[in-house]
Write a protein that binds this DNA or RNA. Structure first.
Lengths: 247, 247
DNA sequence: TTTAAATATAGGTCTGACGAATAGGTCTTT
DNA sequence: AAAGACCTATTCGTCAGACCTATATTTAAA
């Protein structure tokens, strides 16, 4: 374990320490699963108090860079980062941005269309049976009229996650967390009624079959139909609302 | 300001409090720029100590959800989330994933090719003079043989950021932070020698001119040339290294 | 009226302590 | 001797209260 215990000048002490440790993790001086010194030891080395060390560690824990365990074999460990661990952070920020009205629905639909089209093409070429089965299972769930709206939305997210996974491209998978975990729920808030659900399921099924048949263009076409449909539903909801408030 | 001060059962107290406040922010009970109660007040309301409150707040601060200021008019404020604020978190995780060898170079190049192609197409259609000027400025900097390798890489990142911005699509801009801030530096570690820099600049220039001329296909072609070149450089570096270690 | 100092507020840090969880050793029992 | 229960040491989790520091506001002086 190699750390610089140099004092930096700007920012609060806790922030400095957090940055120092983060840097050590990022450039590999601290390896994955390696155990950091105890909080007391860190406090001694940095010449600060333990609560301050803890504040620094909590910042890193919030970024899923480290994790702490209690007990004699406990301590603070460098986490193996996983894309899923990022999803929370990304989702929070993206949700906030959407809630604040930073994006409009057309931007979101465009971004979905373009990025998911990539996934469709790669999925058509690279998918395995695993992902097809996962998508099938979600479609089955979505077809069941007994599933609640919340479950339907969650299933929809999982369906699209499986689609992304089928592209078998790790970096793309990481990027797509933003659209999957934040933009899909936003888009889906539109689709609540049964008949609309039915239509979505039909298009999901078309998408799945296109990918199973390794037909990239058909898959993209199904995706575009799906998004066009959602876009139309959104407009319809808006005008219905406007009509209600006007009447 | 409305908060639930209910006690939740799972997780450490600090984590619970952080989650409680985060939830309040995400579903809008705490609005942007709104000021939270003082740390002392929060401690009183949640029935916990101030250090624990601070740990919770630091977790949120690490996610750029809140920010603290000192002084009488100070306090803890809900931040307006901006995509740039996320870049740090995303970059950290992606860099770590790359460093751990979770992705290979071909995956990264594929992801770059597909996602940046989207940006090229949208940029060709939607760009403004602003982004063109920014790209031009970076090309000028990159052409200067006096710029150091570090500056060249940083400039390259800014060039691609401007390209993404030129697509004028907020959600896409958010997503692309991953590829811009993490994958480009990785890819660029390859390009260090002067002649290679020259070639990159030439292709950047071609890309810029294609977008200026609103020629989406030409822009995509330039991008593909750029990535093919980087891929070839990578292979060359690898075989050179293999030859050295063999000889 | 303008400037400078005092003050109050709220975050930042420290010291010291105790509680809680857990791995490993020790002791007892079979 | 082996298997189990119990104890203990270690380390994070939390608490309490205090003092320091930065800053907006207020007050006083020029």
């Amino acid at each position: 374990m190699v750390l610089n215990y140099d004092s930096v000048v700007r920012g609060s002490v806790a922030k400095q320490v957090a940055d120092s440790i983060r840097e050590a993790i990022l450039d590999g001086r601290l390896k994955i699963n390696e155990r950091l010194p105890t909080e007391e030891e860190l406090a001694r080395r940095y010449g600060i108090s333990r609560p301050t060390v803890r504040e620094a560690l909590k910042r890193l824990a919030a970024q899923n860079l480290i994790q702490s365990k209690r007990g004699p074999s406990g301590g603070t460990f460098v986490m193996r980062p996983d894309p899923a661990g990022l999803s929370g952070t990304i989702t929070a920020a993206a949700t906030l941005l959407v809630g604040v009205g930073a994006f409009d629905i057309d931007e979101i639909i465009t971004a979905r269309r373009e990025t998911e089209a990539i996934c469709c093409r790669l999925a058509a070429a690279n998918h395995t049976q695993d992902e097809l089965s996962a998508m099938e299972a979600e479609i089955a769930l979505q077809s069941d009229s007994a599933t609640s709206d919340e479950e339907f939305c969650a299933s929809d997210v999982r369906f699209h996650r499986a689609l992304v996974r089928a592209s078998r491209n790790g970096p793309l998978d990481l990027m797509m967390y933003t659209v999957i975990e934040a933009f899909i729920p936003i888009t889906n808030m539109i689709v609540v009624r049964m008949r609309e659900r039915q239509q979505v399921v039909t298009l999901h099924r078309a998408l799945l079959e296109a990918i199973r048949g390794r037909d990239a263009e058909a898959a993209v076409a199904a995706l575009e139909q799906l998004l066009d449909y959602l876009r139309a539903m959104y407009s319809a909801t808006l005008s219905a609302r406007a009509a209600r408030s006007a009447g």
